[in-house]
Amino acid sequence: MTEPRARARTLTILVGSAAFVVVVAGMMSINGIVGPTFLAVCLTVTVHPLRHVLARVGLPAWAGTVACVLAVYAILLTFAVALVLSGARFAELLTRYEDEFQRWLTDIKDLLNQWGVGDSELDQIFSRLDIRAVAPYVAEAVSSATSVTGNILLILVLLLFMALDGSVIPRLAAKVPERHRSTVDALADFATGTRRYFVVATVFGVLVALADVVLLYALGVPEPWLWGVLSLITGYIPNIGFVLGLVPPALLALFDSGWQTALWVIVGYCVINFVIQSVFQPKIVGDSVGLSATVSMVSLIFWTVILGAWGAILAIPATLLVTKILVDRDPDTRWMSPLIAGREPVA
Score class of each variant (00 low, 15 high):
T12I: 12
G16R: 07
G16I: 03
F20N: 07
V21Y: 00
V23W: 02
V24A: 02
A25M: 11
S29V: 12
V34E: 00
V47W: 05
R51N: 15
R51P: 05
L54P: 00
L54Q: 00
A55T: 08
R56T: 01
G58L: 03
A67G: 09
V69C: 05
I75M: 06
I75K: 02
I75F: 10
L76I: 15
L76K: 14
L77S: 15
F79D: 10
F79I: 07
A80P: 00
V81D: 15
V81C: 09
V84N: 04
A88R: 10
R89A: 07
L93Q: 13
Y97T: 06
E100W: 08
W104Y: 14
W104G: 07
L105K: 11
L111C: 04
D123E: 09
S127C: 05
R128Y: 13
R128N: 15
D130E: 07
V138Y: 02
E140N: 07
S144N: 12
V148T: 10
V148N: 04
L153A: 13
L160P: 05
F161K: 06
L164C: 09
I169E: 04
L172I: 06
A173L: 15
H180F: 07
R181A: 10
V184L: 08
D185E: 14
A188N: 14
F190R: 05
A191G: 05
T194W: 01
V200A: 04
V200T: 13
V200F: 03
T202N: 09
V206Y: 03
V208Y: 08
L210Y: 01
D212K: 15
L215D: 04
Y217S: 14
L219C: 01
G220C: 03
P222S: 00
P222A: 06
P222C: 09
E223M: 15
L230N: 01
L232G: 02
T234M: 12
G235L: 12
Y236E: 02
N239S: 14
I240M: 11
G241C: 14
G241N: 01
F242V: 10
F242N: 04
F242C: 08
F242W: 14
L246C: 03
P248V: 01
P248Y: 02
P249K: 05
A250C: 12
A253S: 03
Q260S: 04
L263E: 00
W264F: 12
I266F: 13
Y269R: 13
P282L: 02
V285F: 02
G286W: 04
G286R: 13
G286C: 05
S288H: 12
S288E: 01
T294H: 10
T294Q: 15
L300E: 01
L300H: 00
T304Y: 09
I313P: 07
I316H: 03
P317M: 12
K324T: 09
V327W: 02
D330Q: 05
T333Y: 04
R334K: 08
S337V: 11
I340P: 02
R343T: 14
R343M: 06
V346H: 11
A347K: 15
